[in-house]
Design a protein around this nucleic acid. Structure first.
Length: 373
DNA sequence: AGTGAGTTTCCTGCTT
DNA sequence: GAAGCAGGAAACTCAC
């Protein structure tokens, strides 16, 4: 059975999935935008559980972020749609019967079956694409697990791992005697579940390919994800990420499409945050209601537009994800070095400390600190 | 290549 | 409840 409406169904499926109205943002900027990953809430089904994922980065290709074994029918539709679009294939010749197929069932199909379903032109193309996604996902997840837990998973397929039950004991680590088989399986399941469902806990990574290319030739990249919450019907279970800045992935691989083109993220000496703040205060032309002196002689000042100042600082450092929260953390580090002093009980108010310079009227007047009015 | 400085990016807990 | 503050932790870039 063929349908002339399939292409519109594919389009509708995509519209349904991507109706957030995200603008076209280059991947570098997408990577840096602070709020872009908080825009979507999504639901997936896995073994009868409804899972709501809040706050994953959106690329517009959700299926690429999930293992093919966990694709829903929507993801499969999205994936087919992508290939139909890319290959300029006539979607009207496709059978609608297979548009409700989900990832696990899709993964069970061999090349002949795919060709029979999707035709000799699209079938092999889809089969090859699916194999690529399966392989990459399995390899990376296993590698991450092995790296963190020391188990050798090479003899297991993704299917066998996701369907492990507690009677299977797969530890290859003889020193892991205290670890029961059940606990082991649970650990692996938890890890796989976390990876498959876009959960990042420090060393866990998300799977995504270039939104620009959208092609299977472009290698999907792993990158860290921030602030992901998972809810199940059993109750809210927020996955905690470890403290500290998440490690940057693909360190040293400058060819990555996600490498930020900015080279000098770190400000050159002489343009420290406190100096930037000071310059805003002493240069009225730079300070358009952003900050004000509370006590000029004492060096007490206040942020009037904290986020705007943070944005300016971010602009200077070529970091579009700068926020007042981050800026203020850097400000608080100045307390220890006595560049700033605490002003207790007053929000957005800071005071220059004894190790700061160039803000006093007499200094400015005599040109100390390289500042002139 | 190693190291330290100065952030940046997370977090939790508390206060306003 | 939101916003801000405080400070721990870890990772980052850059200068030396």
């Amino acid at each position: 059975m063929s349908s002339p409406c399939l292409s519109s169904i594919l389009t509708n499926a995509n519209l349904t999935m991507y109706q957030t109205g995200l603008p076209d943002i280059p991947p570098q900027q997408l990577h840096a935008l602070p709020t872009i990953h908080t825009l979507e809430n999504r639901s997936y089904n896995m073994r009868g559980k409804r899972i709501v994922i809040n706050g994953s980065r959106s690329s517009g290709h959700w299926y690429k972020q999930i293992s093919p074994h966990q694709w829903t029918a929507e993801h499969v539709l999205e994936w087919i749609s992508d290939h139909v679009e890319r290959t300029k294939f006539d979607a009207s010749t496709l059978s609608l019967d297979f548009c409700s197929i989900d990832g696990p069932n899709l993964c069970r199909m061999n090349q002949e079956e795919m060709t029979a379903v999707f035709g000799p032109q699209l079938g092999p193309h889809l089969y090859q694409s699916l194999e690529e996604y399966k392989t990459k996902y399995e390899t990376e997840i296993k590698r991450n697990f092995e790296y963190r837990n020391g188990y050798d998973l090479t003899r297991f397929t993704m299917e066998s791992l996701t369907t492990l039950d507690d009677t299977d004991y797969i530890s290859d680590n003889p020193s892991d005697s205290e670890c029961s088989s059940s606990a082991n399986i649970q650990r692996i399941k938890t890890f796989l579940f976390s990876n498959v469902y876009d959960v990042c806990s420090g060393g866990t990574f998300n799977f995504m390919s270039s939104p620009e290319s959208g092609s299977s030739e472009s290698d999907p990249e792993f990158y860290p994800v921030s602030k992901v919450h998972i809810k199940t019907e059993d109750g809210d279970c927020r996955i905690k990420r470890p403290r500290g800045r998440p490690p940057k992935v693909n360190r040293g691989h400058s060819s990555s499409i996600y490498d930020n083109p900015k080279k000098n993220k770190h400000a050159p000496r002489g343009t420290h945050l406190w100096e930037f703040i000071r310059d805003i205060l002493i240069h009225p032309e730079k300070n358009q209601g952003l900050m004000k002196w509370e006590d000029r002689r004492e060096g007490v000042f206040k942020f009037l537009k904290s986020e705007a100042v943070a944005q300016m600082w971010g602009q200077k450092k070529k970091n579009t994800s700068m926020t007042y929260e981050k800026l203020s953390r850097a400000m608080r580090y100045y307390y220890k070095r006595e560049i700033l002093e605490r002003v207790d009980g007053r929000r957005l108010v800071y005071k220059f400390g004894k190790n700061s310079s160039g803000w006093k009227t007499e200094e400015i007047g005599s040109g100390i600190g390289g500042v002139s009015l």
